[in-house]
Nucleic acid binder design. Sequence first.
DNA 1: TATGAATGAGACTTCATTCAT
DNA 2: TATGAATGAAGTCTCATTCAT
Lengths: 200, 200, 200, 200
Amino acid sequence: MNLPTKRKEMMNRLLKGQVVKTVLAMIQEGTSITMDQVAARCGVSKGTLYNYFKNKKDLLNYVHEAVITPIKKGSSKIFKKNIPPMEKIYAFVGNVFDFQREYPLYFKFIQSQRSAADAVTERMDVVIIPLVNVCREGMRQGQFMDADPYVMAAMIFGSVVGPFESLTYRDEPLQDLEKLKQEIVRFLDKCILKEQERSS
Amino acid sequence: MNLPTKRKEMMNRLLKGQVVKTVLAMIQEGTSITMDQVAARCGVSKGTLYNYFKNKKDLLNYVHEAVITPIKKGSSKIFKKNIPPMEKIYAFVGNVFDFQREYPLYFKFIQSQRSAADAVTERMDVVIIPLVNVCREGMRQGQFMDADPYVMAAMIFGSVVGPFESLTYRDEPLQDLEKLKQEIVRFLDKCILKEQERSS
Amino acid sequence: MNLPTKRKEMMNRLLKGQVVKTVLAMIQEGTSITMDQVAARCGVSKGTLYNYFKNKKDLLNYVHEAVITPIKKGSSKIFKKNIPPMEKIYAFVGNVFDFQREYPLYFKFIQSQRSAADAVTERMDVVIIPLVNVCREGMRQGQFMDADPYVMAAMIFGSVVGPFESLTYRDEPLQDLEKLKQEIVRFLDKCILKEQERSS
Amino acid sequence: MNLPTKRKEMMNRLLKGQVVKTVLAMIQEGTSITMDQVAARCGVSKGTLYNYFKNKKDLLNYVHEAVITPIKKGSSKIFKKNIPPMEKIYAFVGNVFDFQREYPLYFKFIQSQRSAADAVTERMDVVIIPLVNVCREGMRQGQFMDADPYVMAAMIFGSVVGPFESLTYRDEPLQDLEKLKQEIVRFLDKCILKEQERSS
DNA sequence: TATGAATGAGACTTCATTCAT
DNA sequence: TATGAATGAAGTCTCATTCAT
């Protein structure tokens, strides 16, 4: 790789990174994503944007990938690990808390920029189906309670992701996320594990 | 009420009903909602649409109301009833199953047509907060397990609504919704009630 | 003329009169003239309006005629009279004051509903040209000062019609229109008549 | 200022100037001003128009400013000068003749694009009220005849601006505007000044 | 004849995309 | 390669006019 190419590569990453940050900020704010606005807030011209992205859809796909990749990676790493199923659940909780900012952002992104159908599909592929498999595994190994794995997976997803949405609606604000995490883990234990398997 | 007024009233309902059906179908499909398209698919001209709705926002609000009103009504009736907390949870499950089509539609609607913030707010006000209150009530009365009520409410919501989304993703399709309902109820029993309170 | 025809004729006049009043009021208010609004304010349906007027242009023409006809009549009667030229000027002043409401209305009408060119043409035909002729007559008879008759006519028009527009802009409001009229007449005397012809 | 900015600035002026010319021509013709038509006659696309003007109102305001600014400037310069009142009147006549094209255009513009009320207000503020003040000054100094200053101002305005409108209606066309100006000045002298003040 | 719901041409405006510089 | 002016398709909305009842 020669110098100019290196330089180009750097510019490429710099700008694309800026685009991701900008678009996510705009989604957070609820402002509508126009190429004009993205260009202006990235400090480049609209034309330049089109040198880096084929079109708007391409740009949004890039942002989407940028958001989902770390989450996906974390998830797949967890679910592929050779550890007991309940450990996978704990790891999943940890992952969601680690990406406490990216998670809602990701959902906001697919909600606002993709069709509802796409949003569901993605959630299924990335989170629910793997969770279903973990539940099945846990049941097969006799550690998890018997239940419809799809119901159990939905329960897990709800219990872990849902509380983040209600954070600002609590009567008495919760400062310590660590405490919330422990609450969730304790709760999942009781809902998932057979009694004899529970530590507490 | 004289005849012409009656007739007009009927037409009014007919068209507005048609609009609701059409818009929901379009959201389902993921096609973007334009006044042109809505008019065309309702078999009327664009102008006619504007005789019935002040503007696009008004039209979407109408659809929103049409979807949310029965759900809200059902919800508030349940949560105001003077019955044991767990009965309220059962009734809530029943309500979601009764509106098995409207529920996801409703969430798709607010996701696609409103800001993400609005979507969350609505979900909070209509479902989560009442569920939180029911959980608090159950805990105070000693029937529910001790837990963070927000976590428990999120769990309930996830367990009841989530499975509908995964219906089409199941390995072996589930024909009998009644069975799913029983599964969910059984599962909620185990997650919510203290052991001595459980029937089974 | 049989009864039903008579009745029809009456309805015709009644509605058309109402339309004239309504349209003029709307022009006065500065609200935009739509067939919907005219119909509503006349207490009839839009369809009915189209039974009485071929189209909007036709309706506006009717209003125009209704406003201009009395003014025109008054004017032409004055200018055709066999009286000394200065008497015609006095009569013109009287006519403008008699139609103190209709005059500005008329000008507002042609300004808002017709092209600027039409407005000028009408003013020329109805007022300026006759005034020019009176001035010429007065000069020929040796009673009026020598001047360009078009300038003198413009002066007369300005002096008589202009003050109505400035009524609300006066430092100290003028209640008595009669006094204004005398001021104008006195002023015109000095501007138009040769000195030996002046009464005062 | 660097080259591209200079260039842009030039284009900016070129197009905006073209727009002013076009809109005034359309008003002159009596054709209705639509963004489509303005764009077409300026040889640009509708979108381009919106790159230069925020919206239609903004565009019309620009045209309005372009027409009124030179007139206003000329007027205010005259009326603020420290010269005898009659000299101000002469200067006013000169100004109107200098802007012989812009003056009627200006009035046509506000008549066709603004409410009648606005049109009157503008005429009052820009021309009549200053004239009223000059008349008062002249009367106080004993050079002008005693009269209602509002009537005298209206007379002056009518005498100076009116003849332009009747130009094309004259029996024998007047080629020499200088002659008309002298006629008007001579006429105003007789109408405004006390006899002992007149030069002729 | 009266009604007013339906119509659709046409107005204003936005914004993704192109392209000359 | 960067720029941003120009473009025009597509969207929202208004309103004069028609026509079935």
